[in-house]
Structures are given as structure tokens and as C-alpha cells.
Design a protein around this nucleic acid. Structure first.
Lengths: 237, 237
DNA sequence: TATAATAAATGTAAAAAATACATTTATTAT
DNA sequence: ATAATAAATGTATTTTTTACATTTATTATA
């Protein structure tokens, strides 16, 4: 980093605390959940909060968020994107602090349950969240809105499902995200027409006698299609 | 602001410079343009740049961006939204600085031309921009991608047009944004079916002998429709 | 004052996509 | 063998999208 002495441009400018906060979604048995965190330290000890961190010297915002996610869940290599910046002057009564929210979609059966417990983190259904500190409830509302929009145009739903999943699981994910029942026949027709699912020969019999075939999302095919101007667009209405 | 002495939480945390940078779009005679700025002061004097500012003590990011926009263009009450945060450690060689990009859509005939000139700002067609400082070209690329997406789902195109505009103007705006010729008949049919345009009795004869009727966007109607789960969705492909 | 020139405005038929809707199938437990 | 359960499937109707060419209003000029 360059020596700033004598550089009028930076001299006297305010510097702010800059944090990231992670909105971590999981999909558990038909329910969309969020990982929230009971603060063990002051300030705001004992209150529910998203998981966050100040940005450190040697990392950018996304790296900070990934670091936090790794610390809490043990998970690496997760779908995570910046959402929005929260910069209201008084949003944090402790100090002037800007927070960059990042949302993550995780496969709920893969995270390290012990680690999560150690960090005082819990899963809540998104529709029955407790009151969170600062503007964290707003962050969740914004993240949900974004998720609902984005999931229609990009195949990110798979990030919330196991590597192999059934069509009923996939449908229930979309039903949960859109808060709307979908027709089985039309859902399948639509999804199969996209030609992005590979059927395996195995069935998941955990929720029926007949069992439902397991499928995998074909990311390579998607990438190829997308490059040629393909539109994922799942639901019109 | 609370006294932080004794508050372990903040003590020793790094503080960063936080700036906003404005990606200002305008639509001028069929061409999508961007307002860029020749720096008059060090550092990077003489180079092309987006217009930005450090966030000040008493303002949030959006307020900072609106302040800048007002200073440069004289315009108030402009469509402006946060886009993305740029936080790479070395993005600014002068100091560790995070920038929040904000994009604005302005009606190009309304800004204060003298003010703009005074500030060394110029309009460039987006497809022939000069090289900009830091990661500002990336900001523009990201803003364009966002604009292309958003304009399909939200009626923000009108922010770039005069209050009253013709259908040919509207169509050329979409053609310019999507970089694609559209069919006049289908374009009109689609737009009229949305029922969001009010036809006036006046014509604009500046580009044809016959003249084209002037229309206005009906924001109230849009708001009502949107609340009842309406989908703007302009183009499928 | 007729004609040429110019961009604006319009309609229809065919193809594709979305929707509504009910039965059969595979398997397990009794 | 039968009952129970969730998975899987097909078709007809409606809606939306697409492709495509001519007429209209006006001004300038011959």
C-alpha cells in the first residue's frame, strides 16, 4: 500500500468499519431455513443475529464472507453472492459501520453440525424467524426477495438440494420458495423440456413405497446452453 | 455515536475508505451513453473515470451518490440504485478503499449542461468508452449487464426517456439496450397489451412527416398492477 | 395541385408455450 | 391377495409468441 502522506485526495477522509453479514439458506425437509446465531459476546450478547465479520486487511468482501462461512459450518466452495450494502448512518448504534450482505445457499446435510453448535448457530424456518439485531431482519427480507427472483432465471435451486435429488424434492423446493403449489405434471414437463437433469438408475425410497428416481443437475450442459443465449426461465406466472 | 472506549468489539478493527461511484446512463438519439469524467486533480489527473465520492459522516451510500449526481448534473430525484461493491484489496493503489457502485438513469435533455461542463464530464456511447481508472470499466460492464436484465422485468426504461415519448423512441431504446432489432408490430402489440401507456393527442414530428403520437408511462397503473402480482416481462427471448 | 418521399401505424395466421385436469404404476405392509 | 401410498404419466384447451407486408398521414417539390 502506497504512502498516503502528501496525497490530498485521501487526507482527512472518514474511514468506516466495513463488515459482511451472511444470509445462509438451507432447505430441510420441505422447509426453507436460515442459519442464525446467538451472540456469545458483547455487544448485544444473547441476541439473535446473522453471522458476520469485519473485513480484514488482506481480504475482499466475498473472501471475508467465505471465511466466516467456513469457520461456522466447515463448508468450503459454497454458492455465495453479494446482495446489498447497508450503510444507514445509525444502523449500528456502536459505531459507524457499513455492512455488505452476502447470501449463501448450502446443502443442509453437508455442514459440520458440531462446528455449528459450537458457534451458537441454529436453523430457523424463514417464515418464523426471531427478531434479529440491527437491520438483519431487513437483510433477510431483501435476500429472500432476491432469491425468489433469481431462482426463476438461474438454476441456483440445486445449490440447496443434495447432489442427487428426486423430482418431488425439486418441486417442493420451488413450492417453498414461491410459496405456491405447483402442478406435478406441468412441473415435470417444464423441467424435463429444459433437458438439464440426468436420471440415475437409483431410487430414493425414504418417502414412498414406490420410491422416486434420483436425478443430477447437469451443470456442463447448462453452461453450454447458457453461452448460446439460453433462458432458464422456470415459471411465467 | 456511542463512545467506543472499552468496547472490545470494535477495538483494533481496521477501518476502510468507503466511496461510491456513479454509473450514469443516458439515452441520446438512439444511443445509450454514459457520463464520464476527466479528473482535474491528483491522483490520476487527466484520466477518465466514473464520478464518485467518499461517503461522508452524515450520509449513507445512496445519499452520497445522489449528492454527487446533483453536484455534477444539477439533477434531483433521479432513478438510482445500488449495484455492487468493489472491495479487492489492491483495487485502488492509493489506499485500501471499498467502492459501492450505483447506477443512475437520467433523462438526457434535463441535466444542466453548464454544470456538467464545469465538472469536466462528457457523454460517451457505452460501446466506445475510453479506458477508465481503477476497476471503473468493470463497473460499467456490470452495470450494463444489470440494466439489460432489469429492464426486462421492470419498467425502468422510461427513466431514460423524456416524460412524453413516441413508440418508435421506446422501441429504439429497447433495441439499443438489447442490441437487437425488434419487430414493430410485435413490439407495439406487446407493449399495448400491458396497458401502461397513455396516448396523448399530440405528435412529435421531429423525425417524420407523418409524426408519431406522444405517450406517457402510467406509473400509477403500474403500481396497482404490480401489487396484484403482475409481471412486466417484456421479452421472452 | 398532383406526386414522391418518408416514417408511423396496423392485422392475421401459424407455431410454440402454458395451463388445466385424472389415472395408472410400483412398491411395501398387512 | 389386498390396501395403502406417493410417483409417474398424457392430452386437449388456451394463451402467447412469432413471422410477415401494406396502408396511412404528412410534407416537400415537381
Amino acid at each position: 500500500m502506497q504512502n498516503l502522506e502528501g496525497n490530498k485526495w485521501y487526507r482527512g477522509r472518514e474511514r468506516l468499519f466495513v463488515a459482511v453479514d451472511c444470509v445462509i439458506f438451507g432447505f430441510d425437509q420441505g422447509v426453507l431455513k436460515l442459519l442464525v446465531f446467538k451472540r456469545a459476546v458483547e455487544p448485544l450478547k444473547g441476541e439473535w443475529s446473522l453471522i458476520g465479520s469485519f473485513i480484514q486487511e488482506e481480504e475482499n468482501a466475498n473472501e471475508a464472507a467465505k471465511r466466516v462461512l467456513k469457520e461456522i459450518t466447515g463448508l468450503d466452495d459454497i454458492f455465495m453472492e453479494e446482495l446489498k450494502t447497508y450503510s444507514k448512518v445509525d444502523r449500528d448504534p456502536g459505531a459507524r459501520c457499513v455492512s455488505i450482505s452476502q447470501y449463501a445457499l448450502i446443502k443442509i446435510e453437508e455442514y459440520d453440525k458440531e462446528l455449528v453448535e459450537q458457534h451458537g448457530a441454529f436453523w430457523f424456518a424463514v417464515d418464523s424467524l426471531p427478531s434479529l439485531v440491527l437491520d438483519h431482519n431487513q437483510m433477510v427480507v431483501d435476500a429472500l426477495e432476491h432469491l425468489r427472483h433469481k431462482v426463476q432465471f438461474y438454476p441456483i435451486g440445486f445449490e440447496l438440494l443434495p447432489h442427487r435429488f428426486t423430482i418431488p424434492q425439486l418441486q417442493s423446493l420451488y413450492e417453498e420458495i414461491f410459496q405456491k403449489k405447483l402442478d406435478t405434471r406441468n412441473f415435470r414437463k417444464k423441467f424435463f423440456s429444459l433437458d438439464l437433469l440426468n436420471k440415475t438408475t437409483e431410487k430414493d425410497k425414504s418417502s414412498s413405497k414406490k420410491g422416486a428416481y434420483l436425478y443430477q443437475f447437469d451443470l456442463k450442459k447448462y453452461n453450454t446452453l447458457q453461452q448460446s443465449g439460453f433462458n432458464f426461465l422456470l415459471l411465467k406466472k
